[in-house]
Design a protein around this nucleic acid. Structure first.
Lengths: 378, 378
DNA sequence: ATGTGCTTTGGGAACGTTAACGGAACCCGA
DNA sequence: TCGGGTTCCGTTAACGTTCCCAAAGCACAT
């Protein structure tokens, strides 16, 4: 029952060697013959050795330095992600964690430089938003080769060597949006549109597929139209929506999977369709709040950025501490459904927790340094 | 910036005394003159002393023993809460945590004995479900006097000396249920009923109030009826629902805030009203799954028991380690909206995470002992 | 003077790991 | 045969705390 955990000393004793050698062998540091190293590794496994982290932190009091490569705070989403990371880093009782925020102003502008700098400065880990997977994949690979673990947040970068990722479950998002849409529309006949960023991005395609599948099976009275791609351009979204309204007079609802919901709403308003359409959006940002409150948007699928940030930090930290032995490195979060009824809860929580975090930093100023870093612009 | 944190040694050196004395003074242990103790406390504050937890765990390798006093696993809710606690305890890298589960078969049967035994065996902390607040309040008070922190889960016990609580936000629950109900019913006229356990319980009254307020302000076409109390008795719920259907032929929907949704559904089916009624329930348990899948229940407000357990453990642990200096000790979680579309996500996650946890235990068997304890029945 | 009991204090050893230093053994060329 | 280099390994001092034992000081009785 109360078996004492095995220590370096135990391994050394059973092999008749010194703990120095055991230590070197376990951390494959030079100065150990291949044979003894193999023996050490074997008995370590046999005895079920797990390092005592308290002793480790006590002895080598180095701080983890982790880089957070994300988009600048034009949208509140990434501010919340970063707040979640800060929050969780501040809750680390034992160890020092240094956060370096490398932010870039827009998609595809400075993300490679951020990676280069992080790798060059030899950080211990990276949390990143792999916006353009194909462009970032080689950088993630490079970091992995430099033994720097990378955790992806909000979007996955498969086959890149990343050690883990945390994101919103796309199937759950698409399906709950479809179910809500169906219930909201009741027995009405008509067609339903979906806008997304780019069908080439796995997550967005999955959301669309889940939405379409759920709507087909549960609400056959509604027809899903082909996806509308807006490529994050407001003009594009507005223009395509206008055409959509003309071509589909039976349109009953729209599901906006991107953050570009404002131009969609504007197009609907300009076409005098706002009353007739049931609109479900994604995320929760200031401009959207008024639209939800007025009832123009029936519901929004909230992607919980703060929790994503918290989880990403925990995952990376566990990996750094544990050497990757931990639990499954894929976290899919359930999105929240936000409507008029419960929106205040989320808004208030956003502001409230920032205060909490500030309090935490004041309480223990010396322990957790956090250095801001701006990717581009001087 | 890189200031070295102050240690016991620093305090001892500036006062010209030994670290043994400093240690005794800081932990108000006997054997220190009042004057030196005051001086130590003062300079400790001046120097901003914060104990090095790694060193503490390394030196005194005692385990935290915490008691979890909850209802037996007749409902899956408490099983999930306990799983969440186990999960989070298993994720403690550094320290030993011993979990003692004191479960009682039903409300009001054995909960006092569980408290008595936990206090008697001098556990370090208690997580409890304060079902009957007035009965448990003196016990929580007693534990607090014995310097045993108590965290409430699922329900609060105000003015009891409890150090914290985690629960689902009642306002968000009631309001989102109302908003869903209104949207589901569309332009229909009619009345809406709410069933709850007991109006004398704050949480239930709050849910009802939030539901009623939201419905009144957003959907004036619907009328909220007086709350139906079932006192957790199936017969009672069935009987009262039958009468409800007779008295209110214009009934359009029911919001069931308790777990007693099955008798409500049975009553609706027997009255041949299932098709016409929009039903929103609470929680997610096996019997309910089929009802949601069939569409009889439109949505359920999921109270995230596993997360509640996880949060409760974290809160208690932070308190034990930190001495209560930590962040705000009231956690209100946002409930999840579960419908046909996303139900599979939650079901699969429930089973999947249990597997994860098992894996974690296997990986590190000696570290986290966990002793089960049965409250009554031998 | 010596011993006994008490309170207050000092002085370690231990916890398990890290990292630096030093030493033994070996090989090679002068 | 001796110095110089390499490879491998042992030794040891930290890291900051906890806990126990002993030492010092004092009062009081023997």
């Amino acid at each position: 029952m109360g078996e004492d955990p095995t220590t370096l000393h135990d391994i050394a004793r059973t092999l008749g060697i010194s703990i120095g050698t055991v230590h070197r062998a376990l951390h494959d540091r030079p100065g150990v013959s291949p044979m003894t190293k193999a023996r050490v590794l074997r008995t370590a496994r046999n005895l079920g050795y797990r390092p005592n982290l308290a002793a480790r932190y006590l002895s080598s009091k180095k701080a983890f330095r982790i880089s957070i490569n994300t988009l600048q705070g034009t949208t509140s989403f990434w501010d919340e992600v970063r707040a979640g990371i800060r929050e969780e880093a501040g809750a680390m009782l034992m160890e020092n964690v240094q956060l370096e925020f490398r932010t870039y102003p827009s998609l595809g502008d400075g993300e490679e430089e951020a990676f280069e700098s992080a790798i060059g400065e030899k950080v211990d880990g990276i949390i990143t938003f792999p916006s353009h997977v194909q462009k970032l994949r080689p950088w993630i690979r490079r970091a992995s080769r430099a033994r720097i673990p990378v955790v992806c947040v909000a979007t996955d970068a498969p086959n890149s060597g990343r050690v883990g990722m945390v994101a919103i479950d796309t199937l759950a998002s698409g399906s709950i949006a479809a179910d809500l849409m169906g219930r909201f529309l009741g027995a009405r006949q008509g067609s339903v549109a979906v806008t997304l960023f780019d069908n080439a991005i796995t997550e967005h395609a999955e959301k669309y597929e889940a939405f379409a599948a759920t709507l087909r099976s549960l609400y056959p009275n509604l027809q899903v139209l082909d996806a509308i791609e807006d490529y994050d351009m407001e003009k594009e979204a507005y223009r395509k929506c206008g055409r959509l309204f003309e071509e589909h007079p039976d349109l009953a609802g729209i599901y906006v999977t991107t953050e570009a919901s404002i131009p969609v709403l504007k197009a609907a308003r300009d076409a005098n369709l706002l009353e007739r359409l049931t609109i479900i959006t994604t995320d929760l940002f200031p401009d959207l709040v008024a639209q939800i409150r007025s009832g123009a948007v029936s519901a929004t699928i909230y992607q919980r950025p703060r929790t994503q940030g918290r989880m990403a930090f925990r995952m990376l930290h566990e990996f750094l501490v544990d050497g990757g032995g931990g639990s499954s490195h894929q976290i899919q979060l359930a999105p929240h459904v936000v409507m008029r009824g419960n929106m205040d809860f989320f808004l208030q929580r956003q502001s409230q927790e920032s205060v909490d975090e500030k309090g935490g930093q004041l309480r223990e100023p010396a322990r957790n340094g956090s250095r801001e870093w701006l990717g581009t612009g001087e």
